[in-house]
Amino acid sequence: MVTRFLYVRLLRSLIVFLTILLIVFILPRAMPGNPASILANEYQLPSSTVKVLIEMWKLDRPWHEQLIAYFQTLFTGQWGFSYKYYPRTVYELVMERLPWTLLLLGTSSVTVFLTGVGLGVIAGWRRNTKVDSIITFSAVLIYAVPYYWLALLFQYVFGYLLKWFPITQALTPGMIYRNVFEYVADVLWHLTLPVIAMTLTAFASYTLVTRNSLVDILSEDFILALKAMGLPDRTIMRHALRNALLPPVTMLAIRLGTIVGGAVLTETVFSYPGIGYLIYESILYKDYPVLNAAFFMLSITIIVANLCADLLYMLLDPRIRYTRG
């Protein structure tokens, strides 16, 4: 039973993976415009260069040859040169930016999760009280606040008017650091505004999910039984939480795609040197090698995360809870 479930999931992941790769292959190529003439237009290159570039990038080959080459390069890791940043390699570009994105998204995911779940637990535990009302109501109000709008206002108030935090970039440009601490402090200093803005605009859905799932579980028989046995609140809480946290955790995994998409916005507003902006640029400039590699890695990450979420569900499935309880 369990193994069959696993096989089905794996098969599904594989199909999803190939579908994404195919979409990413077909879409940019099906739409008018080729990367060489985009660059030529942008940088006023002579028209003879366009021909050379098209030949060099093998864009004049029949589509099936391109498709085969596409899969070959992706799976062998020979990602080649970026079109826009030629002759810099895709690997170089991705590795230069990936750490920043991981730092930004990692930190904000943690703060978003902790804030969201924390408030959700409080609201759920004190359900139908004033605290609950205030928390859920403000979560709903904040739920639809556009991230970039809040970020812009933060930049204006805390960066421009009060000058507490830098407005953009990940490091102070041109700064020479005397030691590691200065470097770390500078990184943190630049990280503060984007992370706070992200936390404030993204925590709400976690709060609502956690609250609802906690309320659900607190009304279940086994919790009522524990209560009847006279166990202290803390113990009951511990039991309830283990189950109530499942939905927000899976939500975190499933939302990864949205988070990475959000990185495009974050990095645009804060000029953060991460991979989100690189992806956006590669879409606009049809920088195929970068686009392909970025989406390759993105889909792998998302599929692995989804698989983890599935496994988590399997391990903590309610049926297991009941048999043990």
Partner: peptide, 10 residues
Amino acid sequence: AIPSLPLIII
């Protein structure tokens, strides 16, 4: 399972 936002942007 497909990440929608990046594909919406594309």
